[in-house]
Design a protein around this nucleic acid. Structure first.
Lengths: 151, 151
DNA sequence: TATTGTTATACTCTATAACTATA
DNA sequence: TATAGTTATAGAGTATAACAATA
């Protein structure tokens, strides 16, 4: 056996790729509050799909308190805003500022390059295939998850 | 747009799948010290591929101090043993006990079922394809990584 | 002097619990 | 009474630094 046995383990491979991705993304998103997570929140804010902080937190795999801190930072940086939801004034509607949209546009390209660097060992069709397979797994709607639903 | 935009993000999908995997694996490996990580260390120990704790730590994406604690727990549970490497007595050679091998055998099947549950939305050929693609990304040998090398 | 592994310590990150305001 | 969000606090997890043994 010329290859370590852990390397045939799905969990190991998943973890290794995930770590590599996070490292690349953090390098590219160093200037953005919250790094990769902040980027995902900002994306959701720009798309106006943040029904509530809790829904967004769940979708992103975060605790609601972590989401509070994250948005605090993004708001302090002038990238997003929250205002009470008129329909339910306990909840906050998250929206991106002009600066936030600009920041997203600017970083999106760089992040894409970082992704491609992580996917470098794969040919272009394989990259798309992997993206599709992962998305298919990630967006499965089972259990009690209302987190895939749009606003 | 009927689907949240974050869901077309590779990082989001990778994170979501990874979180789902870890949750499943932790449930199945609840009895094993260190959970999924302990499992990976145990696998390496059984295969006798743990040249040094540091090499193994790097391969598994852990700090060397974390590796110490992890092995402490596995050793206390009687699953692995460490003894000085005759070739370099600073290093420890990690090996599995009979109980460790039994434990790995017993949990491997359960873990495989947990994996398949995570991969459930995919057809069998797609699952294999995903495993291959991830492994291809994870085992790329670049930079200064001697961590893919066998012992 | 450099390196492996250990230990102690400090730090970061996350989750728990209590609170405010809405419903 | 229950829920969204916030805040403070405690806890888990991680990394840093100092050390002992060996190279």
């Amino acid at each position: 056996m010329t290859t370590p046995a852990v390397e045939s383990d799905l969990g190991w491979a998943l973890g290794a790729v995930f770590r590599r991705y996070v490292r690349s993304a953090e390098r590219v998103l160093a200037g953005l509050p919250g790094g990769p997570r902040g980027y995902q929140v900002l994306t959701s804010a720009v798309e106006g799909e943040a029904c509530s902080q809790q829904t967004l937190a769940h979708r992103l795999g975060l605790d609601k308190t972590v989401m509070t801190y994250l948005i605090d930072d993004l708001e302090r940086a002038g990238l997003v805003e929250r205002r009470p939801d008129p329909a339910d004034r306990r909840a906050r509607l998250l929206s991106a500022t002009a600066a936030g949209r600009d920041s997203l546009t600017a970083t999106a390209a760089a992040l894409r390059r970082a992704e491609d660097e992580v996917l470098a060992p794969l040919a272009a069709p394989e990259r798309d295939l992997l993206r599709d397979l992962l998305r298919k797994l990630a967006t499965r709607e089972d259990a009690n998850e209302a987190c895939n639903a749009p606003c």
